[in-house]
């Protein structure tokens, strides 16, 4: 464990807290992509299958349960609970996620670490997480303006994997035979997708005023 990875996990937890507060207190899922939340639920449920046999630390196992529970709760609330379910707009939030899941599944089959079924599923979840934010970014693009809390949610989510990139660099230089090309590649793609958002987020927050984030 190093500070980058710890801060990355804290940023990830923060993103869950912000989103859960927004949809439970704000009673609205407007501006939130259910598609992206469904992809995250698939990512965590598939990646953390090893909960049952790979006990590397209490910290890991605890957060795996937390991430599966939170992502499932978010999908449940937006999909089934009133009044949030009425604030979700299927016409706007209509990114064809099958075009994300399909290629990631093929990639997981072909490029993985150990050729066992779990490793294929694990690689699938890594690739899927890299592109899972796309429906959310497309939704924000369509709306042009980003609600304040949503912008903090997306920023925390982008920061989490950005901090993980630093964690991988740190581990590469401090641990011998540390090699994780799959997560390095996917994590770089994932963080890259946020660059444009971060630019607009920074511009809007720079003045100290919480001017809304505008996407062109």
């Amino acid at each position: 464990m190093n500070i980058f990875r710890f801060l990355g996990d804290m940023s990830h937890i923060l993103s869950f807290v912000i989103l859960l507060l927004k949809i439970t207190q704000g009673k609205s899922a407007a501006g939130i992509s259910l598609r992206t939340q469904e992809l995250y639920m698939i990512v965590f449920c598939s990646r953390y299958l090893d909960l049952f046999w790979n006990f590397s630390s209490l910290y890991n196992s605890f957060l795996k349960v937390v991430f599966i529970a939170c992502s499932s709760a978010i999908v449940y609330i937006i999909r089934f609970k009133s009044p949030q379910k009425d604030t979700w707009n299927p016409e706007l939030d209509n990114f064809p996620i099958q075009y994300l899941i399909g290629p990631c599944a093929v990639a997981g089959l072909l490029i993985n670490q150990d050729w066992t079924p779990f490793e294929m599923i694990w690689a699938f979840s890594i690739y899927l997480e890299a592109v899972a934010i796309l429906p959310q970014l497309f939704l924000l693009q369509k709306q042009g303006e980003v609600e304040n809390l949503t912008s903090h949610y997306v920023a925390a989510l982008g920061a989490y994997r950005g901090l993980y990139l630093m964690n991988w660099v740190y581990r590469y230089f401090t641990e011998d035979d540390y090699l994780q090309r799959i997560v390095w590649f996917a994590g770089t793609v994932q963080t890259g997708l946020y660059i444009d958002f971060f630019y607009h987020y920074y511009q809007s927050k720079r003045g100290g005023l919480s001017r809304p984030v505008k996407l062109p």
Partner: peptide, 10 residues
């Protein structure tokens, strides 16, 4: 001693 799994990250 369980094999230290390559997946020690979240």
């Amino acid at each position: 001693q369980s094999k230290p799994s390559a997946h020690d990250e979240l």
